[in-house]
Design a protein around this nucleic acid. Structure first.
Lengths: 117, 117
DNA sequence: CACCATATTCACCAAACGGTTAACTTAACC
DNA sequence: GGTTAAGTTAACCGTTTGGTGAATATGGTG
């Protein structure tokens, strides 16, 4: 049933809560990159970016190669899948059973490009 | 294409980063509830729970009825869908093109019980 | 080896977070 | 209309977070 530890889930969501870190992940989705490359788009110092990468690494959203210059960073997919799964589970519950009428109401109420599947 | 403002996404993920708030959402997936009902399972004071609800409300993950005793809380699905969509987009990028080999590697590597509970 | 660019660690800081207790509001019910 | 239970607001406290600059480590290359 792929039950994920609460603490891991918390670290993942906390990591995703920062726009800089989300941008880094978006960049890494296109392929491996070094710290300097990842830092380039942002108006902040290298240590700041390095910290963000540590947060992402502790959340197991990324993985890093050897230490030192040109250190490579790459995306790890599993935790993102875990988090996505948690949301899907919530949605499954609320879309069936008791919450169902509520869900229908909400959907008709805010009629804006809701993509369900 | 349902492009979601960065700030909203940050608020949603930040709200989801706390286990208490995730538990509250899980409870609300089963149906509407009052603050006292939501607070019951937790070893913390009412004001603490009230704060958590405010965070969820600012993130537009929940909605609350009239103020005062018996105040009803209910789930709002849209932001959860937005966040899920953001993850799906990341995944789509990394699963195609450059990141593809990486993804295959990860999946075969993690093939055995990486999901603890 | 020495050099150099890359990256991390080390204080340090201000602001935000998660919790508390105490005081105040709000709505319902005799 | 007063009492009372349910929620919120206010003030406060310790910890975490996101950033800085300065110092330190790492590894490829002349």
């Amino acid at each position: 049933m792929a039950v994920v530890a609460q603490e891991e889930l918390s670290r993942v969501f906390a990591a995703l809560a920062d726009p800089t870190r989300r941008a880094i992940l978006a960049r890494l989705a296109h392929g491996e990159a070094t710290v300097a490359e990842l830092a380039a788009p942002f108006a902040m110092t290298l240590p700041a970016v390095s910290k963000h990468l540590s947060v992402l690494e502790r959340a197991e959203l990324i993985e890093r190669g050897r230490r030192g210059p040109g250190r490579p960073c790459r995306l790890l997919p599993q935790r993102l899948r875990d988090a996505e799964g948690w949301m899907r589970d919530r949605r499954a519950f609320w879309e069936t059973g008791f919450g169902r009428i509520q869900a229908r109401l909400d959907e008709t109420a805010d009629e804006e490009g809701t993509d369900d599947e």
